[in-house]
């Protein structure tokens, strides 16, 4: 493990609302790793806590904002990005971060997700993709791999999954990247990069959910799933265009510097004779 990034020099404890711990997550869950990476990335970005708004939907991963000391908003299932859009437009100077599960962001909230990409609004969205509906007990999600089992796909998932990063890239997000909870340092780096971008940035974190995904798919523990994630991970060419072998394609799928929505809005308003 590269010592620099996980160095103890980064104090993330100051961001935790300790009275709300322990968290609700299972042993072996990847949500804690995402939390750690996110907090280190925020620390490295030098944001003041008062200037950060963290917004989530409903799901295990969406409980994350409750544990951290920012302006935090736990909304309705799938709609975090809509609320976050209001916050960003209301206070364009704030750093607005969304944390959302794969079901939250791409099933019930899929429309908000692609429209935020299209608007390229200055929000950093962390999509925690555990391939399953965790909170509700393991139903199939739009990212469940074909053939994998879920409580509502007892014979194996008959549907094809979304590729969240390609979706975000095609819909116009400035930044879209995928890594995994196994690659915790890389995750921190990509979130840091996303936080530094103007415009909409998407960081998809593939995470283990032993309780709801692993147990039904021959990998009952967090360690099993971590090993699987490591084995299946493969890189892509910059821009995500090349054919990568089957597996979890990791890398940066969109990296653009198109103008951010609230900046365009402010210019338009100025031009309208404000």
């Amino acid at each position: 493990m590269a010592g620099r990034r996980l160095s103890p020099a980064i104090d993330i404890e100051k961001y935790l609302r300790k009275r709300n711990l322990p968290h609700i997550w299972c042993a072996g869950c990847g949500n804690g790793i995402v939390l750690g990476a996110l907090l280190r990335a925020i620390a490295r970005s030098g944001f003041r806590q008062d200037d950060v708004a963290m917004v989530s939907g409903i799901g295990c991963s969406s409980r994350l904002p409750g544990y951290v000391d920012f302006n935090t908003l736990h909304t309705t299932h799938g709609r975090a990005i809509a609320f976050a859009t209001g916050i960003k437009l209301g206070r364009p100077d704030m750093h607005v971060i969304v944390v959302s599960g794969d079901g939250d962001a791409t099933a019930i909230g899929g429309n908000h997700f692609i429209h935020a990409c299209r608007r390229n609004i200055g929000i950093t969205a962390i999509i925690v993709n555990n391939y399953i509906y965790g909170m509700t007990g393991g139903q199939v999600s739009p990212t469940t791999p074909k053939g994998s089992r879920a409580t509502t796909a007892p014979f194996g998932n008959a549907e094809r999954p979304f590729d969240i990063c390609l979706l975000a890239a095609a819909a116009g997000a400035n930044f879209a990247a995928r890594t995994t909870a196994f690659h915790a340092d890389k995750l921190e780096d990509l979130i840091f990069k996303g936080l530094g971008r103007k415009g909409f940035s998407v960081i998809e974190a593939i995470t283990p959910c032993p309780t709801c995904f692993g147990r039904r798919n021959q990998n009952p523990t967090g360690v099993d799933l971590m090993n699987l994630i490591r084995e299946q991970s493969c890189g892509i060419e910059p821009g995500g265009k090349s054919e990568a072998p089957a597996g979890i394609r990791l890398g940066v799928f969109a990296d653009r510097d198109e103008k951010e929505f609230t900046e365009i809005y402010a210019e338009m308003a100025a031009g309208a004779g404000r």
Partner: peptide, 25 residues
């Protein structure tokens, strides 16, 4: 926009009220 306010047409009504609540906060 001419009064320092903000108007946005959202993708549906669920998002519209969500955004309004976010802005209210």
């Amino acid at each position: 926009p001419r009064r320092g306010g903000c108007f946005v047409q959202m993708e549906d009504e669920i998002a519209s009220l969500g955004a309004a609540i976010g802005a209210s906060l």
